Amino acid sequence: MNSDDESSSRRHTARRRRADLQAQLRVTREDIERQVRDGRERFDQVNERIEARTGRNLFLAIIIGVVLGAGLVASLIFVKVVFVIFATIIVGFTAFELAQALRRTGRFVDPVAAAISAVVIIGTAYFIDAPSRGMVLAGGIAFVVVFRLVAQMASGSTRGVKDIISDLATAAFIQIYVPWLASFAVVLVAQENGEWWTLGFIILVVSVDIGAYVAGLSFGKHAMAPMISPNKTWEGFAGAAACSILVGILLALFMIGQPWWIGVILGLLILGSATVGDLTESMIKRDMGIKDMSSWLPGHGGFLDRLDSILPSAAVMFGVYTVVMH
């Protein structure tokens, strides 16, 4: 075989190898694309089943939960004042959201006034003492009440006395329910090592939610409060209890430096407060005839839908900290 034939043979062999490699790469790429499509279809099917059972988009819920959680943890660990700012913004939006939802049901409340008062209550809680916090709360309630009375007079509406009193009570309720309860988390952060206690109770609330979610989704058969929250089951509550006690013990030993039995007490108390908070908000929403407070947090509903268990739990954790540390 002469040199030209050898050169032609090598070129032919090289072309064949390239063609074989390209074919192999094409088959591999198609196989990967097929596996991705199959995986996505399976994920969508699972997500659809979960969403049908719980009414939540799991993927969006996880993404938003991770983002909010990362911001919360970072603000707690590095600079306490940043947490105060973070909490003030969230609580302001929550008060506005609740007032807006109540307004859609025919109640005359003022979302902007509710948000302004909430921001002042939560924003000052870190810097003042307990008597002053009570005065700020009273001032915030007086502000929203006066604002509503002035708005009522300015509107020229012939709304009845009973309805006006109901509107004023609703405006006051928003301030007590959202910023006042949330302020206990800010006050707790201001204490020595309070950031770890705050992070601990938030982790406990999340563990209650996760335990109830997983156990309820897997084993839930017996409704816990069908007239208030149809998706809650006693099996889910049992899962939440087991999870909260276990996490409480771990947090007591490794985060807040307390005996294991303090962790058991914390787990049970936060289990109770988180459950009551969740059912309370569910009852409010059922009274208003809505599923979510808003659609501001896709996969979660609204801000209050995420804070409902945290609000009463903040007061409970502050009480435990006061008893244990003083």
Rank of each mutant, 00 (worst) to 15 (best):
S313K: 02
D305L: 02
E30C: 11
E51L: 04
K162I: 00
A182R: 07
A118P: 13
E51T: 01
D308T: 11
L253D: 00
A52Q: 13
R42N: 10
I176S: 13
L149M: 15
A212T: 05
A151Y: 13
M283L: 13
G257I: 03
P179M: 03
R56N: 05
W261T: 10
V324F: 10
Y321G: 03
A172C: 10
M317K: 13
D129F: 01
Y321R: 12
V323C: 06
R26L: 05
S166W: 04
W296C: 05
Q22T: 00
D31M: 12
L253E: 00
V189A: 06
T13C: 05
V82G: 09
G71I: 03
S229G: 05
I141A: 07
A182E: 01
V206I: 01
A185F: 13
T158K: 15
G123M: 04
G92I: 00
V206Q: 12
M153L: 14
V145M: 14
H12E: 02
G123H: 03
Q22K: 06
M1I: 10
A242H: 08
I90R: 09
H326Q: 11
I176M: 13
L25Q: 03
E51R: 14
I165K: 08
P298R: 01
T280W: 12
A151S: 12
D5Q: 15
A95Y: 14
R104F: 08
A113R: 03
A125I: 00
R34Q: 12
F143Y: 15
A52T: 07
P230H: 09
V136R: 05
C243D: 04
V264K: 12
A240H: 03
L98E: 05
E97C: 09
R10K: 15
H326A: 11
L102C: 13
I116Q: 01
D287M: 09
V323Y: 15
I77N: 07
D167E: 13
H300K: 01
V27F: 10
A225S: 08
D209N: 07
R26P: 01
G299K: 01
F83S: 04
N193I: 00
F303D: 06
I50Q: 04
Q152K: 07
D308F: 13
R40W: 07
F108V: 08
Q258F: 14
A238L: 10
R104A: 14
F184C: 05
L311S: 08
K221W: 03
G156L: 04
F93D: 04
R286L: 10
S218Y: 04
W296H: 04
G156Q: 06
T170L: 12
R10M: 05
Y213H: 07
V82C: 11
G71F: 11
Q152F: 11
S309G: 11
